[in-house]
Simulated assay, not measured.
Amino acid sequence: MRVNGRGESVEVRAALLRMRRSGLLPVSFGGLVAGGGGLPVGYGARQFRISELAGTATEALRGLAITTGNGLGGKTLAMGRPYAVTEYRDSRVISHEYDAAVASEGLRSVLAVPVVVQRRVRGVLYGALRQPFALGDRPLNVALDAARELEQALVIRDEAQRLLSFAQAPLPADPRAWEEVREAHAELRALAGQVPDARLREELLSACIRLAAAGAPPQAPRTGPAPGAPQLTPRELDVLSSISSGATNAAAAARLRLRPETVKSYLRSAMRKLGAHTRLEAVVAARRAGLLP
């Protein structure tokens, strides 16, 4: 499956609003290459569309298809580097296929920064002024920070897509392959805690429930925990899931972005609820209860 583009649009808008709220880039706009595509830095994706606007006075830029190499954004797309012009209409360092749309919005000084994920240009963010002022380091750094934040959000979405695809595939019959299932379950739970998008987070947790229930004995198929199963908190389950995949307390803490002492506390609480005296007993009891795969 493909994680829908709605969440990506929300994240692009958040990046643009961050740029605009700095007070240095009152107009911002941008978009991503469709389908999560893009070629390695230096080769350029073929095209992207400007899909999100902030601080604009018209809709002239919305939906504009930016082709690699064309205009300021196309140059950024092709080269994977930031570029800026002080007077867009008169600049000799870019081509001018999009002058009409830029003029309709009344833009003069414009900068563009690439959104790069795993060395692939996934989109471009623009910041602009309606006056011909040189855009120096401060506005450029604001745009770069917004791009980095968006890149991190896209990395999380890409990983969510990979794990959800795995979780929705037919589960293995070979018992030896269940270690991979358990690792995916632990990664899904850890990732869900980092996702601000409530819909995506719910999708990840639903996949976790499916993987956990799939480990139930064949004679008692379930779609969730067994009746009467201990009520573990989400964080207790996160910790237990990481431990079940072979992680040490320190590794679980790093994965879940917790302190090792906090991991120990959650683990002790989970063991008490499960009536277990060791980590292994806790994992076995959680699997029997349909809480872990």
Rank of each mutant, 00 (worst) to 15 (best):
F29E: 04
T76H: 00
R6M: 13
A147T: 05
G71Q: 00
E202A: 15
A212R: 08
S109E: 02
L240S: 05
V284S: 11
L125H: 05
L188G: 07
C208I: 02
A45T: 02
A213H: 01
A153R: 15
A220T: 11
R6D: 15
R46E: 15
G73H: 02
A213G: 06
R176A: 15
E11G: 08
P172C: 10
V115A: 04
A167V: 12
R120L: 08
E159S: 07
L292Y: 11
A167L: 11
L232K: 11
R222N: 03
R92N: 07
V12N: 07
R268H: 14
L171Y: 13
V117K: 03
N141K: 14
E87S: 10
T56Y: 06
N70I: 09
L150W: 12
M271N: 00
A134H: 09
L16H: 05
S28H: 01
R222P: 04
F166D: 05
S269H: 06
A14F: 03
N249D: 15
E159L: 09
A247W: 15
A146Y: 01
L77D: 01
L24Q: 12
V33N: 04
Y266N: 12
I243K: 14
A285D: 10
V283H: 14
A253P: 12
A250K: 12
S265F: 06
A250L: 14
Y83I: 01
A276G: 03
R89E: 14
F48S: 04
G215S: 09
V102K: 11
G44A: 07
G73M: 00
P227L: 11
V41T: 13
Y126V: 06
A270Y: 10
F48E: 02
R120F: 03
R13G: 09
V113Q: 05
A213R: 01
P221N: 03
Q194I: 02
R122T: 03
Q161W: 01
V93C: 00
F133A: 10
A169L: 10
R272F: 06
A220V: 08
A65R: 15
P218G: 05
I209R: 13
I156S: 08
A289G: 11
F48G: 04
I156A: 10
R122D: 02
C208T: 15
E87Y: 13
G290L: 13
E52C: 08
G246I: 12
A34R: 13
L64E: 00
S244M: 09
T248Q: 11
G228V: 07
E261C: 00
A253T: 11
V33D: 08
G42N: 12
R255W: 02
I66T: 09
V181A: 01
S95W: 01
L17I: 08
P234G: 08
K264T: 15
G228T: 05
R138P: 06
R6H: 14
V195F: 07
S245G: 09
S242V: 12
A212V: 09
V93M: 06
K273T: 03
A184C: 06
A54W: 07
L164C: 05
A143D: 02
V116E: 03
R162L: 08
E159V: 05
A207E: 06
L111Y: 04
R20N: 08
L39P: 00
L237H: 05
T68Q: 13
L72S: 02
R46L: 07
V41W: 10
L25G: 03
T233M: 14
A253C: 10
E149C: 01
E149V: 07
A101T: 04
N70H: 14
L24P: 03
